[in-house]
Simulated assay, not measured.
Amino acid sequence: MPGNPMADSCLVQSYDRLVSLSEADRMFLRALEEHPQDVSAGAVVAEQGSACNDLFVVSSGWCASEITDDAGHCQIVDIHLPGDIIGTREVAFARRLSTLRAVTDTTVCPFPRSRLNTMFQQAPRLSGVFVLIAMRREAILSERIFDLGRRDALSRVCHFLLEIKQRLEDSCTLREDRFEMPLTQQQLADALGLTSVHISRVVRRLRETGVVDMRRGQVRILDARRLKQLARMNEEYLDLDTSWIEGASPLAVDPSMLDGQPESALPELDGVALPQTVVEDRDDPAGPGSADEPARPTREPSAR
């Protein structure tokens, strides 16, 4: 039976929504969050090109993975929400492929990637869910590629809002049809391959047509049906099929072993020094103050 959702983190709840977890399964997942680190908004958690020794669980707040080239051009390639495990793509590499930055004041929990060995060897069901979630991340990136090639600015923004809404529902942090949107206009532009001018125009249009009210860091969906039409969204890429792992065994370790012998059952966490400096926001929070005050662009609009 699933555990008490009020007593468990977003990570445990998100796994428990997909498959029925044993108490040993829950204890293993909780152990991944044993070393929380508070990070200020804008601070870098891990630098692109640094050694990739650890993964991170997002316990609270939002993070973003971004890639920057030698000319200083930045592309946000992933948004991380509470309950996400960050670094599933990078476990195959010695160096990090992107910079991990806190979008809001955030709590992340680093754990060594070697801890995955325990899960793969002793927890078939957890391993299956881990693979499912990692593959959904790849599906989200595929949708982002389709965004860049085939969706216009309006559809991209609508699609992104619906995707974030669904992911927040999965992490048990959504309250009705209203949710937090802490990304700045420039960050939204960097994530969707647009300019801040595009974002400002789309946000104003959605508000004026009564589809979405997006201002002061909050999103309120007013017309869900119309929003889905504008997004041209196929939600199947977010709907995971767990049927093939339902019969997998739970964690093959006695819970007392996890609690009493962490040095053998769960490798000790490598120390991770997180910077205390905060990088200033590059733009105002998403959503213009009024229809008469569109956001000023921070870069030249691209021809689209």
Rank of each mutant, 00 (worst) to 15 (best):
C10Q: 06
C10D: 02
S14C: 02
R17L: 09
L21H: 09
E23L: 10
R26H: 10
Q37Y: 04
A43R: 08
G49M: 05
E66M: 14
T68Q: 12
D69A: 01
D78I: 01
L81A: 09
I86W: 05
T88Y: 07
A92P: 05
F93V: 02
R95A: 03
S98D: 07
L100Y: 02
T104H: 08
V108T: 12
C109G: 07
S114M: 00
P124E: 08
R125V: 09
L126P: 02
L126S: 01
L132T: 04
M135N: 09
S142T: 13
I145H: 11
C158V: 08
E163F: 11
T173P: 00
F179V: 04
M181N: 01
M181P: 01
D190N: 05
G193S: 08
G193D: 12
T195L: 03
I199S: 08
R205G: 06
R207D: 15
E208V: 13
V211W: 11
D213A: 15
R215W: 00
R216Y: 13
I221E: 10
I221C: 10
A224N: 07
K228V: 14
N234M: 01
W244F: 09
D254E: 09
D259I: 03
D259S: 10
L266Q: 04
P267C: 00
P275V: 11
V279M: 01
V279T: 02
E280V: 03
R282D: 03
D283L: 01
D284S: 10
E293H: 09
A295Q: 11
A303N: 15
